[in-house]
Nucleic acid binder design. Structure first.
Lengths: 82, 82
DNA sequence: AGTAATTTGTTCGTATGTATC
DNA sequence: AGATACATACGAACAAATTAC
């Protein structure tokens, strides 16, 4: 089970906490084929704002874990695509 | 006469102002049978963006004043339909 | 029957304003 | 002053269903 809550009192920024959470969920095998939930959906799911979600996704994209197709969605990078 | 302008300097969000305007116009008897103007039309009429229009329509839909048929249009809820 | 236009649905990109720490 | 964060807002692009011709 992965924690979907953000601790606003934590010294760890919310966008970092979200990146950690998404990294775990991806590692656990969520969204193997299709796209991740949309920014708006993640906003609602985690109770956070838009730019926080976008920052988290950018972290994962910089790590090569996901890639974003504009106006399509964000996808998990397949291993045979590395 | 119903005001069709959005005051961008108002603390009231544009989508709320639009919802108020549409609610008044519906109450005044506009669009008794047919659908409301399309999103694109309302964008032009009020000089606002797409998501602002959609948020306003969602407010009215949540209030039960209108209902949207996907890819058809948004209709005023008839009283004998309540 | 078939193609183009219309319309809503969805999504990311970007910008601004405000508040907080 | 700067980083973080939320809300609002416009734009652009594409999908999918419906309608018009």
């Amino acid at each position: 089970m992965t924690d979907r809550r953000i601790d606003v009192r934590s010294p760890v920024p919310a966008y970092q906490q979200l990146a950690d959470s998404l990294r775990q969920r991806i590692g656990a095998g969520e969204w193997p084929t299709g796209p991740l939930p949309s920014i708006e959906h993640l906003q609602g799911e985690y109770g956070i704002g838009r730019d926080t979600v976008m920052r988290a996704i950018k972290i994962l994209a910089d790590e090569g874990i996901v890639y974003t197709i504009p106006r399509r969605g964000t996808y998990v990078t397949r291993k045979d695509h590395e």
